[in-house]
Design a protein around this nucleic acid. Sequence first.
DNA 1: CGCAAATTTGAGAGCATTCAACTCCTGTGG
DNA 2: CCACAGGAGTTGAATGCTCTCAAATTTGCG
Lengths: 253, 253
Amino acid sequence: MAGVVRLHEIKRTCASCSLQELCLPLGVNEEDLKRLEQIIQRGRPLDKGRKLYHQGDPFVAIYAIRTGSVKSFTVGEDGNEQVTGFHFPGELIGLDAIANNHHDCTVMALETTNVCEIPYERLDELCETIHGLRHQLMRLLSKEIVNDQKLLLMLGKKTAEERLATMLLSLSARYSLRGYSATEFNLSMSRGDIANYLGLAVETVSRLFARFQQDGLLAVEGRNLKILDFSKLKFMVDGCEPPAKLTENRGPN
Amino acid sequence: MAGVVRLHEIKRTCASCSLQELCLPLGVNEEDLKRLEQIIQRGRPLDKGRKLYHQGDPFVAIYAIRTGSVKSFTVGEDGNEQVTGFHFPGELIGLDAIANNHHDCTVMALETTNVCEIPYERLDELCETIHGLRHQLMRLLSKEIVNDQKLLLMLGKKTAEERLATMLLSLSARYSLRGYSATEFNLSMSRGDIANYLGLAVETVSRLFARFQQDGLLAVEGRNLKILDFSKLKFMVDGCEPPAKLTENRGPN
DNA sequence: CGCAAATTTGAGAGCATTCAACTCCTGTGG
DNA sequence: CCACAGGAGTTGAATGCTCTCAAATTTGCG
């Protein structure tokens, strides 16, 4: 319906997409890629605050972020939110819906965001014959499990300080992978989202940013962030000890 | 090598397995099931404390618990453990290894445990032609993501009390699904494992058990557990409010 | 039976939360 | 252009939940 003006941008193909290597096409040959492209739909941009899908929505498709960023969160029966993740270009979302045939979380745009919609049934059909695609999809599912488990480790054991440091380094690494600066970037999520995600109070996050800045680790100005001391941040994350070689004296096997 | 005595037990088939409906075979027809069975290996039982695989081991197969139970845990660089889950008959483990081609956690038997070993490459081959199998595998992967995210919600926001209540109810439901009593069962994991899993100190868990018992919610005696008041436990888990209908006055979409 | 590990119990300390007030930023309407 | 409303973010003070340390007690197993 919209003008044809930036059709070239909207109809961008996987083959020409810079995110190929992070996304579903990884490991799929050129020919098969064309078949994949045929089932992918690219709608209009999602404005900030708009939802891609709601918790409870029937499962129809999975989505890849093309530009922008989103947060996903679940709402418990008691009504309060838990942010389960932030997602950036090249990342696949909606995979949790395969289990129960409906989405278990809501996904909301943190800024203007473009997504690729991949109807699951048709993707599944393609998986039958395209081995690489099948495997990459599995890998991405598996990766999400690994990620969640890392997050678990974090929420279970780490202090507020360690949690924030971990998140900042994760963001930095992800931006870096996508060709952006690893040291300076803009947070697309609010302090509230960060706090919720990390299982902390907003005030605590605010105080931590203040302290990190005071300690010369960061330069923070609203949502603009500059990392000044990577090594100290990493030091926080790893606990305390440098990678010591543990002499395993545990049981057999 | 072992005697032929209980061969009938060891060579038990999927078709005759009572866990069929919880496990990989769900949605696979009889004929295809035979093909699946052919690739599955059932080794000797794993004694308590033995490890099924180590963090870092190359990825060869996924496993289904047949009898017994296991815990899975990751060891951070700083050396401390995080228990990421407990697994019971019918549950598939090792799925996290698909992502990076090596296991990201260690799995240890909590009691004598039998597992079915399913070589991944051959499973993948079967997935090519057996649609139901492919879909079930995806579902199980997805389910694990959903589970982890629920756990995240728990560790992020809940109090110690709520965490333990949540875990007990989860165990109860799982035992019940497997045909055991929902109200009385034996914990195969130590207090330490529980504490670690829930992100609490051992002492806290111990005190909670004492308090729950004192409040008439449970009867605890070592690892034997009887749930006396389900509704109160559920009440704890849900936060506080009965399923109130929230008048959603949020944004559009 | 006896040691070692697991569990329980007690007391005190600390980190993060909660409550409260205030500032800053943004967008809207006069 | 400016005043104002409202949300987002910051800062301060006090409470409290959970942890840590310490020691007693029980359980499991050789």
